[in-house]
Simulated scan of single mutants.
Amino acid sequence: MNTLSSAPSCTRCGPFFSASGIVAGYGQSQVLQGASIRVEAGETVGLLGRNGSGRSTFLKAVMKLLPSQGQISLNGAALERAKTHEISRAGIGYVPEDRAIFPDLTVRENLSVGLPPSGRTNAPSSARAKPWREDEFFDMFPNLKRRANVAGGALSGGEQQMLTICRALMGQPALLLVDEPTEGLSLAMVDQVAQLLKEVAKRGVAVLLVEQKLTIALGLCDRINVMGQGKIVFDGTVEQFNDSPDVRAEWLEV
């Protein structure tokens, strides 16, 4: 039996981020059938589902990387009519599944691409938030520091993934959309990605995480959404998800 629950949010101000009634697809194929997701300030929400369920499409629809319908808001500002660069400047960072680094730019140049326009700083999602800086990423990831002047295309897959996340954080986002960050990585690199995402949460940045590895998602997230057939079929805490084996059986297990 499908389960759909949600914790109450402020009826006056609404959730920090919401995307409701999202309809989107590719050509004549409609993937999303009115999906709705909310993320509160400083919250990490996992978006789970089988391959082809529409998770990556949802993130692309939020970023306006494909035609879509529905309502999108961040911190009270309506974004459904905004263009991709306007959504980014409003405070939403995006880490795509394919990493999309600039292969001919150095690590340092890739990071600088993520910087916000001069004089613009996104409002932090929490008083704990503080600006992200290049030097602290180099402290966290010595490999990136050693290869600061190496072209991005020469990095390993794991290094490229770290660079992509760090580049998105250089824009000082209030909300970070992350698509399959541990896909194809070694166990050591998976752990580094998880530690970085934990630090992101500590800094008060809200996160919407698409992740195939269930143990990673459950370890990082405050709340779980499950997508099936282009809609959200479950929304609840990690504890509620763990207490709903029917959801896992119907919408996640192969």
Rank of each mutant, 00 (worst) to 15 (best):
V31E: 02
Q33S: 13
Q33A: 15
S36R: 06
E40D: 15
E40P: 14
A41H: 10
A41Q: 13
G42F: 02
T44S: 14
T44V: 11
V45C: 10
V45H: 13
G46V: 05
G49H: 12
G49L: 13
G49W: 15
R50F: 12
N51Y: 12
G52E: 10
S53H: 03
G54W: 03
S56E: 04
F58K: 00
F58R: 00
L59H: 06
L59Y: 02
L65F: 02
L66I: 10
P67I: 07
P67K: 10
S68Y: 04
Q69V: 10
G70E: 11
G70Y: 08
G70Q: 07
Q71A: 13
Q71F: 03
L74Q: 10
N75G: 14
G76W: 01
G76L: 06
A77K: 15
A77V: 12
A78L: 03
L79F: 01
L79C: 07
E80T: 11
R81P: 00
A82Q: 09
K83C: 04
K83L: 04
H85N: 11
H85Q: 07
H85S: 07
I87T: 06
S88D: 11
A90C: 14
G91D: 01
G91Y: 01
I92V: 09
E97N: 11
D98A: 15
I101A: 11
F102E: 14
P103G: 05
P103T: 13
V107K: 03
R108V: 14
E109A: 02
V113H: 01
V113G: 00
L115K: 00
L115C: 05
P117K: 02
T121P: 05
P124M: 12
S125A: 15
A127L: 09
R133W: 02
D135C: 03
E136R: 10
E136F: 00
F137T: 12
D139K: 06
M140E: 06
F141L: 03
F141N: 10
P142Q: 08
N143G: 03
L144R: 14
L144F: 09
L144V: 09
K145Y: 01
K145V: 00
K145T: 01
R146V: 06
A148R: 15
N149H: 14
A151N: 09
A151S: 10
G152P: 07
G152S: 03
A154Q: 13
G158E: 08
G158D: 09
Q160W: 00
Q160S: 09
L163W: 04
T164M: 01
I165M: 11
C166W: 08
R167M: 04
A168T: 01
A168I: 02
M170F: 09
G171K: 00
Q172H: 12
P173H: 04
A174P: 07
A174Y: 01
A174N: 02
L175K: 07
L176T: 05
L177W: 05
V178Y: 13
